[in-house]
Design a protein around this nucleic acid. Structure first.
Length: 368
DNA sequence: CGATAAGATGCGGGCGCCAC
DNA sequence: GTGGCGCCCGCATCTTATCG
């Protein structure tokens, strides 16, 4: 597929989504698809009730009128009105209306964009409360299920559907006939706009799309990815086994550098065995929060290569009491005095410290 | 509560590979 | 040789956490 084709495909898809969903609380796409030459005027399509005055009608030059011509014009006008009425009816029939659907009839998208959130999604409870209090503000996008008549497949709005199911309510939805490509592109675009997917979820979503044969450029466009980012997504998704990523979960606070570091560690077979062992441990299962679970796995794999930071050393006074602590973590030395010191001590320390350092340097020099 | 450090994210641009 | 593509490095900016 050429870049031009890709762009027109995206424009055709997303331009119409935004136009049809003015109540979705999102700004219209700045480069939305231009209205097709044979499409009804924009106001007809968007609002249905607006007065229809095609531009060509307004531009048509007036001609002199005889009785016959007047009748012809009148008939012509009538036929135009009939034609416009037909168009209006057509647009009303095809315009995307929000309908209510039982969540039990709705299946998830064929490409998952979530990791290990089933039943443990921290934000879902909040969404349930919001919908309970204010109703569902934004409709979800569905398509008729390609294999099962009477059922639907989700393009986006999975969490809203889960929340509605939990409340025992129907889901406000727009149903549109979508190809596989259109469905995943809508799904990717929506997730990108909402910024509610973590790094690793986006990585696996991009990877899943590539695995299903979607072109790299299409995936980049749909997820608004820079080419370099796309490369890193695929590298991480290939290096981190899905079962491990699923066990960890979305880890929203863990970004690219740490997932890439984990992916690097997981390239070794021994590390994969260790990670598998970690995710089945009781401690891991008892850990709440995907960020904490990530840290457990990461620290377990990193344990050998990165020694723990040394504990602060205590300096004891004549009576054996701790008078100061020396912290050498992160490659620097820091001295904290336990008690307040007398006036002038800082100046004394300032004067004596160079001598102390010099004396230390001399003691380190090899003798002879 | 402001300053600072650490981490996350987006992006530019160089490089190598490959098809034409 | 040229252009397209993917990989990689590194920088700038923004956000979040920590410290004093």
């Amino acid at each position: 597929m050429t870049g031009q084709n890709r762009k027109s495909q995206l424009k055709a898809l997303f331009g119409t989504i935004d136009q049809g969903e003015g109540n979705a609380g999102r700004a219209a796409e700045p480069n939305a698809a231009p209205t097709a030459p044979d499409a009804p005027p924009l106001e007809t399509k968007a609002f249905g009730l607006a007065k229809i005055v095609p531009a060509e009608t307004l531009m048509r030059p007036r001609t002199s009128s005889g009785a016959v011509k007047a009748m012809g014009l009148s008939l012509g006008g009538l036929s135009r009105e009939v034609e416009e009425a037909r168009r209006l009816k057509e647009s009303l029939d095809t315009v995307e209306r929000v309908i209510e659907i039982d969540p039990g009839l709705i299946d998830a998208s064929f490409v998952s964009d979530r990791l290990g959130r089933d039943g443990t999604d921290e934000g879902l409870g909040e969404l349930v409360r919001s919908i309970e209090a204010n109703g569902q503000q934004v409709p979800v996008l569905l398509r008729p299920h390609p294999d099962q008549a009477g059922r639907y497949q989700t393009a986006y709005g999975h969490r809203r559907i889960q929340a509605a199911a939990r409340l025992g309510r129907s889901v406000k939805a727009i149903v549109r006939s979508l190809s596989d490509t259109e469905l995943v592109l809508a799904q990717g675009k929506e997730n990108t706009e909402r910024r509610d997917l973590s790094f690793i979820e986006r990585a696996f979503f991009a990877h899943a799309l590539i695995a299903r044969g979607f072109e790299r450029g299409v995936v980049q466009d749909a997820l608004s990815l820079h080419k370099a980012e796309m490369t890193r997504f695929l590298q991480v998704a290939e290096a981190v086994p899905l079962r491990i990523a699923n066990a960890i979960g979305p880890a929203p606070k863990v970004g690219r550098p740490r997932w890439m570091a984990l992916a690097e560690l997981l390239k070794g077979e021994a590390a994969r065995v260790k990670a598998q062992d970690e995710i089945t441990s009781s401690g891991f299962c008892a850990t709440t929060g995907s960020d904490a679970r990530f840290n457990r796995v990461f620290e377990r794999l990193n344990r050998r290569t990165k020694p723990p930071a040394p504990a602060p050393m205590e300096v004891h006074g004549a009576a054996g009491r701790t008078i100061a602590r020396i912290d050498t973590a992160r490659g620097r030395a820091r001295v904290d005095f336990v008690d307040k010191f007398e006036a002038g001590f800082a100046e004394y320390l300032q004067a004596e410290l160079p001598k102390l350092l010099e004396s230390f340097a001399l003691s380190r020099k090899p003798k002879g």
